[in-house]
Amino acid sequence: MTPKEIAISAVSALDEKKGGEISAIEIADLTTLADYFVIATGTSNTQINALCDAVEKRLKAQGETPLRREGYRDGTWVLLDYGCVTV
């Protein structure tokens, strides 16, 4: 998948789980960290973990797995690193 396809798929998964303030920001010309940042908010620890699970499930079905996942245990923030896309 291209970085744009990964970002679009992540946005779709977040939207289905009622993520708030969803943004996909193309940063390829600004940094070498990633091509896209996808950002969303949740209203509780439970919803934040559900948002994370939805993104992982959707992208795994499309053959993409995160290189790293941070913050899931606390549930107040989560970072999913797909290399070219950070959610």
Results as ranks from 00 to 15, higher is better:
P3G: 04
K4I: 09
E5G: 03
I6K: 14
I6N: 04
I6V: 15
A7P: 09
I8C: 09
S9I: 01
V11D: 08
S12N: 14
A13V: 07
L14D: 08
L14W: 01
L14Q: 04
K17D: 09
K18H: 11
E21P: 02
E21I: 00
I22M: 05
I22P: 03
S23Q: 14
A24Q: 09
E26T: 00
A28G: 08
D29H: 11
L30I: 12
T31Y: 02
L33E: 03
L33I: 14
L33T: 03
D35Y: 04
Y36S: 10
V38K: 01
I39M: 11
I39N: 06
A40T: 08
T41G: 15
T43Q: 13
N45M: 04
A50W: 03
L51G: 00
L51C: 03
C52V: 06
A54Y: 05
K57S: 13
K57R: 14
L59G: 07
K60T: 11
A61H: 11
Q62C: 04
T65H: 12
E70D: 10
G71R: 02
D74F: 06
D74H: 12
G75T: 03
T76L: 10
W77Q: 11
W77H: 06
V78G: 10
L79P: 08
L79D: 05
L80S: 05
L80V: 07
D81R: 12
